[in-house]
Amino acid sequence: MDSPPIVISASPHVHSDRTSKRIMYDVVIAMVPAFLVSLYVFGINAFIATATAVVSCLLFEYLIQKYLLKTAITIADGSALITGILLAFNLPAGLPIWMIVVGSLVAIGIAKLSFGGLGFNIFNPALVGRVFLLVSFPVQMTLWPTAVENNTTLADAVTGATTLGIIKDGLQFGETMTELSAQLPSHLNLFLGITGGSLGEMSALALVLGGLYLLARKVISWHIPVAVLGTMALMTGIFWWADPQHYANPLIHVLSGGAILGAFYMATDLVTSPVTKKGMLIFAIGIGVITVVIRLFGSYPEGISFAILIMNAFVPLINKYFKPRRFGSKIKAKIV
C-alpha cells in the first residue's frame, strides 16, 4: 500500500523556489545592460576583457579545486562567473590580457578559495583582484582608452581621463571647478555613459536599470545602494555648498567613477555584506564616507573599491553588534 521508499524528514516539507543559483544568475542578467553599453563604447576590447576575466576565473576555480584543494568543483554555481564579470567591469578596456589573468587568479585563488570558497570569503573577490592590479600596475590601470582608438561612433566624446581624474588633477594644480567644467562631460552624458572610465562603470542608466531588476527580483534590498549613494551625495553636497569652486557637485560624484557600480553590484555582494538591514545601513554609510574621504582628500581620484574592502573587514563585527531585536525582549505593551 505504501509505494516505497517513503521519505521521512523533519519539517518544513515545502521550500520556496528561490535558490542560490537563481540569485547568482539574476545578478548576471542584471549586468547585461552595462555590458552592452561597454561593447558600444569600447567595442571588441570590452568583449575581450570580459571574456578573458570570465574564462580565467572559471578556469582557475576549476584547476584549484581539482588539483590543489581536491574538493568538489563548483564552477556551475554562478559565483565565479559573477566575479569574472565584475572584475572586468572594474578594469580599463585595453588592459593587457595577461594582467587580467593575473587579476583573476588573485580574485579566485587568494580572495575566494583560500578563505574556503563561496560563502566563506571576507572580501569581495573581484575587488581584491582589481585593487591588486591597481597597486601593482598603477600606470596601465589608469590608462583610459579613448573611443577613437576603438573605432566607435562616439568620436572624441570619451576622453583620455576619467571625470574624477580630471577633477583631482585640476584641483591639485590650483584650477577651480568653473575652469574645469569645460573639460568635464555634461551630467546627461555622465548618466548615459558618454565618458571615460572602467568597462562597466560607464553608464549610470544601464547600471541603475540592472539594479532595479535586482531590487525587483529581491536579490538585493534598497538599504545598501540607497545608503551608499545617499551618504556620498550628502557629504559631497556639504563640501560643495561650502566651497563650490574647489569641490565638485554631488551629482557629479554620484554619477561618475564606480559609485553606482559599487553601490548596486559590489557593496551588495551577499557574502561580504551584513545580514541585518540595520547592519547594512551602517556598512553602506561607512562605504559612502570612506569613498568621499578618498575622493576629496586621498591621492587616488576614486576610492569606492578601497571603501568597500575596508568595510568588508568590518562585516563580522557589524553582524555581531547589530543583531535583530529579539521578539519579546523589550516589552512595550501594557495591560489595558
Binding site: 542560490s20 540569485i23 560563502g119 566563506f120 551577499l270 557574502v271 545580514v275 535583530p324
Partner: peptide
C-alpha cells in the same frame, strides 16, 4: 550548499533570531 549569508533567514524569522 554553503551559506551565502544573504540574511533571508534573519529577515523572515518572526522571533528576531539569527
Amino acid at each position: 550548499k554553503p551559506c551565502i549569508r544573504c540574511g533571508e533567514c534573519v529577515t523572515v524569522c518572526p522571533m528576531g533570531l539569527e
